[in-house]
């Protein structure tokens, strides 16, 4: 292993290293390429797909899932999962709408803060179940998926809040655009950039990756694993709470069934976005791009007049393709890494 050791490995290293480096970035890049291809093909078949209105719709439609995907990524990175997000969204959307409808005097920012806090509380329940009670996340959050939804049903008691019951100013938040970009998309973008920065640049952010990469090693490294996992769940819950308000503002009509089944879209976006489902790697940017890609595909299929049943099948096929690709890439990287030793 003297200095000349590098000369032996240099032959395969150039290629291997380039591959590794490219693959490291390819997750996000791959989605961008897929998006480009999708827009080119669909746009060629039907130019109206590229119109401002259509693009604006895609952004609006993906904003909420993207926001949820960012939160979910925080949890998945730690080798956990949160299935209960859709119920949290439902609870927060209904709670927010109800307050706005029944107590018109309460200022909107306070309602939004309340919804975020409600979401954070739900996240804390999940986090405590997983961290303190050591229930596997899949089981714990499956339980709370039903529990939170049950609370939602009991609270609503069959009631529905309509757009007419809510203040104009609030509903405008869901549809207004700033410089041509819908406000929910801007909110999602701001959250995305903030969380992305934190994951990369805070020690606690790096610790989330460490926990997911090897929980046992994280304990030995002195990382407070339970606290970090709890934080991830709380942050995810808070974002789900925020997504709930956005839902109410955007759609106007809110009942107890809001966002039912959305958790699968969110996890699909995360997986398509290249976040490893067993933790330790992936970025929020990938997850958000995954959300945009899935929303774009739905829009494209509608524009291309593919019927709704086929759409589900196509989404499924895409998910499988993403998982297979992920696996293949992981194997390639592992093989390349074994060849690479010297700097």
């Amino acid at each position: 292993m003297t200095s000349a050791a590098s000369s032996v490995t240099s032959a395969g290293r150039g290629g291997g290293r380039r591959l590794v480096d490219r693959v490291a970035r390819v997750r996000e890049l791959g989605i961008v390429v897929a998006l480009g291809a999708l827009f080119a093909v669909t746009g060629a078949a039907n130019p109206s797909f590229l119109s401002y209105g259509s693009l604006r719709d895609i952004l609006l439609n993906s904003a909420i899932v993207a926001l949820l995907a960012v939160g979910q990524t925080l949890v998945v990175i730690t080798r956990n999962v949160d299935l209960s997000v859709s119920s949290v969204v439902g609870l927060s959307a209904f709670g927010g709408a109800l307050i706005l409808a029944d107590h018109p005097g309460v200022p909107v920012p306070l309602v939004i803060a309340g919804c975020v806090a409600l979401g954070a509380a739900c996240g804390a329940v999940n986090g405590l179940l997983v961290g303190a009670a050591r229930v596997p996340a899949l089981v714990a959050t499956l339980g709370t998926l039903y529990a939170f939804r049950g609370v939602d049903y009991a609270w609503a008691g069959g009631r529905q809040v309509n757009a007419a019951d809510m203040p104009e100013g609030f509903l405008a938040l869901g549809t207004r655009s700033v410089l041509g970009v819908p406000l929910p998309a801007l909110v999602a973008l701001a959250v995305l950039l903030t969380v992305g920065w934190m994951l990369r640049n805070l020690r606690s952010g790096r610790e989330l990756y460490a926990i997911g990469s090897s929980p046992e090693a994280a304990v030995l490294a002195g990382i407070r694993v339970r606290r970090r996992v709890l934080t991830a769940f709380v942050a995810n819950g808070a974002l789900a709470g925020l997504a709930g308000v956005m839902w109410a503002a955007r759609f106007g009509t809110v009942d107890a069934t809001v966002a039912t089944g959305k958790e699968l879209d969110v996890i699909a976006a995360v997986v398509v976005g290249g976040v490893a489902i067993f933790g330790g790697s992936g970025t929020v940017y990938g997850a958000a791009l995954g959300a945009v890609l899935l929303a774009s595909i739905t829009s494209a299929l509608a524009v291309l007049r593919v019927d709704a049943l086929a759409q589900t099948a196509i989404n499924g096929a895409l998910l499988l393709a993403a998982i297979v690709l992920d696996r293949l890439l992981a194997l390639r990287v592992a093989a390349a890494l074994r060849r690479r030793r010297s700097p």
Binding site: E207, A210, S213, S214, A217, L220, A221, A276, G280
Partner: peptide, 21 residues
């Protein structure tokens, strides 16, 4: 420790400085 306790997904340098970057 007797058995290595590294984070496979993280870079070697982050493994060394985890929590003290």
């Amino acid at each position: 420790y007797q058995e290595p306790t590294l984070f496979p997904d993280l870079s070697v340098m982050e493994n060394i400085f985890m929590g003290r970057q």
